[in-house]
Simulated assay, not measured.
Amino acid sequence: MGAHIAGSAEEWVHVISESFVPLSLANVSGSFHGSAEQTVLLPGVTVTDVHTYGSSVVLRTPRLVRVAPREDYLFSLHLGGAGAVLQDEREAVLRPGGGALYDTTRPYRLVFPTDTWELVLQVPRRPLRDRVRGIDELSGRALSADHPAARVLAAFLRELAGVSKDLTPEQRAEFGLTAVDLLATALRATAGEETSAPSGRQALLRAMRSCVQEHLTDSSFTPAVLARLHGISPRYAADLFGEAGTSPAAYIRDQRLQAAHRALTDPRQSHRTIAGIAAHLGFTDRTTFTRAFVRQYGMTPADLRAGQRPA
Rank of each mutant, 00 (worst) to 15 (best):
L281V: 07
V47A: 12
G140Q: 04
D49A: 11
G80N: 05
I277K: 02
Q171I: 12
R235D: 14
Y73W: 14
R95L: 15
S219Q: 11
D88F: 07
A68Q: 00
S270H: 07
L138W: 04
Q38R: 11
F221A: 02
R201G: 04
Q38F: 01
A191G: 01
L240E: 01
S17I: 15
G2P: 01
G245E: 14
Q87V: 09
T185P: 06
R188Y: 08
A250S: 11
L182R: 09
L77E: 12
S8Q: 00
H4C: 03
V50F: 10
A68I: 00
T104N: 04
G298I: 15
L257T: 12
D239A: 06
A279G: 02
L204Q: 13
A191I: 03
R262A: 14
S196G: 03
T284G: 06
T52Y: 04
P124L: 01
V45N: 01
L41T: 01
I232R: 02
A197D: 06
S199R: 13
R126K: 08
V47W: 03
T246K: 02
R201W: 10
S270F: 09
S8E: 02
R129Y: 03
T287Y: 09
T300L: 09
K165W: 06
S210A: 10
L257A: 09
P43M: 10
P169Q: 05
S247V: 15
V40W: 04
L304E: 07
V111N: 05
P248I: 10
